[in-house]
Amino acid sequence: MEEEIDEELEEEIDEDLDEDFEEDTDDEEDTDDEFEDEETSREIVAPGEVLSEDMENFIPGRGTILNKKGTKIISVLVGLKQIKKNYINVIPLNGFYTARTGDKVIGIITDKNPVKYRVDINAKYNAILKPRNTVKRSKMRRRGKSSHNLNTERFDIGDVIVAKVISADRLNNPELTIVGKYLGKKMGGIIISIDPPKVPRVIGRNGSMIKMLKSLTDCNIFVTQNGRIWIKGDKIKKERLLIEAIYKIEREAHTRGLTDRVEEWLQNEKEKRGIK
């Protein structure tokens, strides 16, 4: 009974959907899946562990530091050890999101005033969205009126937006824009969040994982860098299955052969639950 109601609701929302989002929302075409990389060992390291004392052949990379004397390379995170060319990196297994210029993020409007919106983007600072970065797309400029903010989009507190970070540094709050492809307000669907370092794993190498999830569950997925994932499918059963699959990927992110294992698991579950 409950599911029936849900499905009806879904259909209603479907009609409301902004036409811009009807298209397939693919994201992150050029993301490297570092977890699946052949050079990544399955060795888990902890902060303070010595990765190498061979200073002639190796250079400290991401997630590592040199000790005071400069004789050892030390990990600063809990993660997987990776040797790439002559760099030693540590791929983090847990952590928080730090906004970087160019990232696509899903944010929730938490405050608004005449000059800016405040957006929660799951980072340590709230992001700022200024009206000049919200100029509406595909709408004709109204003639005859010169008011400067007529063609800006209006949001309410609690609205969910997909935005791009246009400036972010250590000192100032990051600034967002919603001008661009796939950006803007999201209607309908479900948003789940995962650990931000595991986002590359959900996308997979050249998007292999996300393609597999899409084809097996017939859902639209939009993965963003801050660990929030937007999901929308035609049936609530399929959406539930997909959410479980994503949490499974998050949990087993550091294991080998994940794409095949998840594919097998999804097919088994589909049979069990009677999803066609």
């Binding site: 902060p47 530091i65 983090p92 370092p197």
Partner: peptide, 9 residues
């Protein structure tokens, strides 16, 4: 360390 905070050791 479990929170993913970078630490020297």
């Amino acid at each position: 360390a479990d929170a993913g905070v970078p630490m020297r050791s």
